[in-house]
Amino acid sequence: MRELRIHGRGGQGSVTAAELIAVAAFESGVYSQAFPAFGVERRGAPVQAFVRFSDGRVRLRSQIYEPDYVIVQDSSLIRNGGVFDGMKEGGIAIINTEKPPSDIEAPAGVKVITIDATSLALEVLGVPITNTTLMGAFAAATGEIRMDALEKALRERFRADLADKNVTAARRAFEMVGGAA
């Protein structure tokens, strides 16, 4: 079983990201489970959401403390947000920042991938909502979900015009991170 923890702030769509990654993973042929860490939701507050990937039914219900992967939607969370807490050796961190990976202070053994998802989202979607962009980056970086499965999940969730834009954002990120279609 592999585990993903998504760190973001209220309003950035972290819960939606977890759900859509789980849907895309299921479409890609694995059992998946997605759930939020519910707080008293308010815009801007730190939030977490979780996804598990497994070859069989996922029975475990606790939150994720030792992730294989993290997605960080807001780099201001790196300082005090505990985004790398418990990360497994060989884990992959996908971080929304304009900085290069070498500028990110991550624990040894964690592979850091950075992408300026905010600029890409502003360019493609016109709003700084980075969740779909980071899903594309996640697909490319980890191979847990196929890009076509992600596209299907996005098209099921969003109405046509919004879906087109979000698929474009996800695809651009997928290609930037070096995913092979």
Binding site: E19, A22, V23, F26, Y31, S32, Q33, A34, P36, F38
Partner: peptide
């Protein structure tokens, strides 16, 4: 734990 969880 169940009501808001996505699973098959």
């Amino acid at each position: 734990i169940l009501s808001h969880t996505y699973e098959p």
